[in-house]
């Protein structure tokens, strides 16, 4: 357990202080494409400096270290209770070390006990697979981008959005328009078409586990991802909503079955400070391999 605790603290540290390579590449490409001398270009330059500084100083990229969401793929028989207890302890330890902000508030009393642990915090999702490996992925998702997420119920008459892919496209682009710079763009969209109100958002967030370069295996969804990305970047919202070219870095869409009566499109927005990392665990709980 001690080794696992150490591993999870290191996973939290690295997730909080280092941006994944695929995101960094996309940000550098955005900076190069932005018009020189604009405030949009200035914003992206500061973002690049910030990424370098956070890594060098081993301090959080963003002070909002966000919702702490673990995704664990494990074989049958894996002790989920032990893992969750260790994860909670690791979160509190990482908070003391300053890798996480004291970020968890009792919703009824308003008290923040500084541990980052409480009802629903952190969140751990377990998924069994028929393989011996245990992999742990971690996402830290800040509140600014979480607040601009949106769930649409189709048909949405005001947006002329019917129950088809064009309707989905309309509401997804509406979410981009409404978000403007409030979610710390250039952002990344995770979308789920279908599901219920809970699973729709849940699956939309899981899309952020894909790398930016990953292409959708479903041809229709792949086309929609590319189309929304291209269209959003023609709107001129730009980094921080300052105006400019880089509005989104990526769009990831999945579909889940729905009830005949319901047609939800759930859109999660991830900020440029897209913090996700993952490890494969060795038998003793040590880090065997980094996943991103």
């Amino acid at each position: 357990m001690e080794k696992l605790a150490e591993t999870l603290i290191e996973l939290i540290r690295r997730t909080s202080v280092e941006i994944p390579d695929d995101v960094n590449r996309a940000l550098i490409a955005s900076l190069e494409a932005e018009k020189k001398g604009t405030i949009a270009e200035g914003a992206l330059k500061i973002i690049e400096q910030n990424i370098e500084l956070a890594k060098r100083k081993s301090q959080p990229i963003c002070q909002d270290t966000g919702s702490i969401i673990f995704y664990v793929d494990c074989p049958a028989g894996f002790d989920q209770l032990d893992f969750e207890a260790t994860a909670r302890a690791a979160v509190t330890a990482a908070t003391k070390k300053g890798f996480l902000r004291q970020n968890s508030v009792d919703s009824l009393t308003g008290k923040n006990d500084g541990t980052n642990v409480g009802p629903g915090a952190p969140t751990v999702h377990f998924h069994q697979h028929r393989a011996p490996e245990v992999s742990v992925r971690l996402m830290l998702k800040g509140g600014g981008c979480e607040n601009v997420g949106a769930q649409y119920s189709l048909p949405a008459e005001k947006l002329s959005a019917n129950r088809d892919l064009d309707g989905c496209r309309r509401v997804i682009l509406d979410a981009v328009l409404q978000a403007q710079g409030k979610g710390c763009g250039p952002g990344i969209l995770g979308v789920c078409i279908g599901g219920d109100r809970a699973t729709g958002y849940e699956f939309s967030k899981q899309q952020f586990l894909r790398t930016l370069e990953d292409r959708n295996a479903n041809a229709e969804l792949d086309a929609l991802e590319q189309d929304v990305l291209k269209t959003a970047n023609e709107l001129g919202i730009g980094p921080m909503g300052f105006g400019g070219k880089a509005t989104l870095l990526g769009v990831k869409i999945c579909a889940a079955n729905r009830l005949p009566a319901s047609f939800f499109v759930s859109v999660s927005y991830m900020c440029w400070a897209y913090r996700r990392q993952g490890v494969n665990l060795g038998a003793a709980g040590q880090i065997e391999k980094w996943l991103y």
Partner: peptide, 13 residues
Amino acid sequence: LHAIGGAAQVLAE
């Protein structure tokens, strides 16, 4: 005055 969101290290400096 709009600061750069997410730039916690540059601004902490």
